[in-house]
Design a protein around this nucleic acid. Structure first.
Length: 463
RNA sequence: GGCCACGUGGCGGAGUGGUGACGCAGCGGACUGCAAAUCCGCGUACCCCGGUUCAAUUCCGGGCGUGGCCUCCA
């Protein structure tokens, strides 16, 4: 089994070689918890869940460590908490907001059929590690203290900018931001900053007397380092995080630990558009996972829709493609209920497709083949492997059945009447009844009983 | 302005230096009183212009278009 992954660092697909096959380690940037997760947030969650499943398949479930963090300290969080809970003490409001948002996030993604990560660390539980990193960086001459801030000195790192493929000169030339006066270099970034009253505050590193709080990137360096070590295998996230977030994570971690790399492979998922337009609050097309679920789309349909496009390609998220995804999944899901298969059972073409840089569209094409070949056992395995247990669709069908049950007393006599009309060849009447039922959302199917030759009618409620 | 990615039939979407998967939709047929469902069959595509090559959709260059990053963002 060969696994090849596209590495942003080298801009090419490379054979994947774990540092330690007994413990393959992956870190993925999780949400900053201040608002509902939108459908774009769902993409890395789903994509790297597939990779997690594939790694578990290849190296064994207990030999993969997947860390996806929750960032619960951030300016946006502070602002939102103050806005939503103006009457609460800041730290209480912030805690309330982050707890609620994190719980909501878990609820939303649970519907997407993702496995829980091995570790889900929180930034606020790693402040000590962040302070340590700051101290190390200052001690090694990669960071300096100015105006109660700790700043990373990008000029101290020879290949800063390697991940995003840009030189310091280019970045400075293209810079649109005003440079804080206390910075030595315009691209230097904040590792630690002083807290204003009402902001979360912790004892500062580097001998700074004022209490402070971490900058944006340091939390991932701290959590990745603590749970995965100085150098690990895979680091993932959205493509927009390449710069500055991941670039700065690399700078912090490598310089603090004195290593050549932080993670060997850097993976970035592409962006998502909605009905051909950029998703933005101003356009009013900002779609949350919760909205889609509330509209009645099963979570597995969202997952399927996401995987129909390769993870590095842009997705145009449309209602039409969701409908198509639902139609396909619905036709397959009766096979998702797995009969007990021997643990060694696997469908190699699916694994091979995923092994080529997570080629999920090709894997789904393989599913179509299995379906066509009526290989339901393999189809069921593959669906399950890809995270489609059929649970949400089954729940939906159960709800439909329950609803159908409530109107059965009205529907059954009409169907009987229609069959009578058909026997008399009174097709005007039978079609009228069918239209009447259709208006109630009831769809009919006539089938001929093989044994008796009688016409029998089944019905179901459309959503 | 700088850097980067992408551009395949009506839609979604693989793949390849030499007959262009697959799915959805569409069309035709079977079945049906008619539908629905099911089954069988079918069509049309590689953004444009150059270059390399016996041969390019595939490689190279330029252009156009879309998107991303350069500032918070998956």
């Amino acid at each position: 089994m060969s696994l090849r992954l596209y590495n942003t660092l080298t801009r090419q697909k490379e054979p994947f070689q774990p540092i330690d096959p007994d413990n393959v380690r992956m870190y993925v940037c999780g949400p900053t918890v201040y608002d509902f997760a939108h459908i774009g947030n769902a993409r890395p969650v789903i994509v790297f869940d597939v990779l997690f499943r594939l790694l578990r398949e290849i190296y064994g479930a207990q030999h993969v460590t997947y860390v996806r963090n929750i960032t619960d300290v951030d300016d946006k969080i502070n602002a939102r908490a103050a806005e939503r809970y103006p009457d609460l003490a800041p730290e209480v409001g912030i805690r309330k907001l982050t707890e609620e948002t994190a719980a909501q996030f878990h609820k939303d993604i649970a519907a997407l059929g993702v496995l829980p990560p091995t570790v889900e660390p929180r930034a606020t539980e790693h402040i000590v590690e962040m302070v340590q990193l700051c101290d190390q960086l200052v001690a090694k001459g990669h960071a300096y203290v100015a105006a109660d801030h700790v700043l990373f000195d990008v000029s101290s790192m020879a290949d800063y900018g390697k991940l995003s493929n840009r030189s310091l000169e280019e970045m400075e030339a293209g810079s649109r931001v005003e440079v804080a006066p206390y910075k030595k270099g315009p691209m230097d970034f904040v590792l630690w900053k002083p807290s204003k009253p009402g902001e979360p505050a912790w004892p500062s590193p580097a001998g700074i007397a004022t209490a402070g709080r971490p900058g944006w990137h340091i939390e991932c360096s701290a959590m990745a380092g603590k749970h995965l070590g100085d150098v690990f295998d895979i680091h993932g996230g959205g493509i927009d995080l390449t710069f500055p977030h991941h670039e700065n994570e690399i700078a912090q971690s490598r310089c603090a630990h004195g290593t050549d790399v932080m993670a060997r492979v850097w993976m970035h998922n592409g962006f998502l558009q909605v009905e051909g337009e950029k998703m933005s609050k101003s356009l009013g097309n900002f779609i949350t996972i919760r909205q889609l679920l509330d509209e009645g789309w099963p979570g597995e349909v969202l997952r399927f829709n996401m995987l129909r496009t390769h993870y590095r390609q842009p997705i145009d998220w449309t209602k039409k493609s969701l409908e198509q995804s639902q139609a396909i999944l619905t036709s397959w899901y009766p096979f998702a209920a797995l009969e007990t298969l021997p643990p060694s059972f696997r469908v190699q073409p699916i694994i091979d497709a995923l092994g080529d840089d997570l080629n999920t569209p090709l894997a789904l094409a393989e599913l179509h083949k299995l379906d066509k070949a009526d290989d339901h056992l393999a189809l069921g395995w593959a669906l399950n492997f890809l995270g489609f247990s059929g649970e949400t669709l089954k729940a939906r069908e159960a709800a439909q059945l329950a609803e159908a049950h409530t109107i059965a007393d009205k529907v059954e006599p009409l169907i009987a009447a229609r069959l009578e009309a058909r026997k008399r060849k009174d097709f005007t009447e039978s079609d009228r009844i069918r239209d009447e039922l259709a208006a109630m959302g009831v769809t009919l199917k006539d089938t001929k009983n093989r044994d008796t030759g009688e016409i029998e009618t089944t019905w179901e409620l459309q959503r």
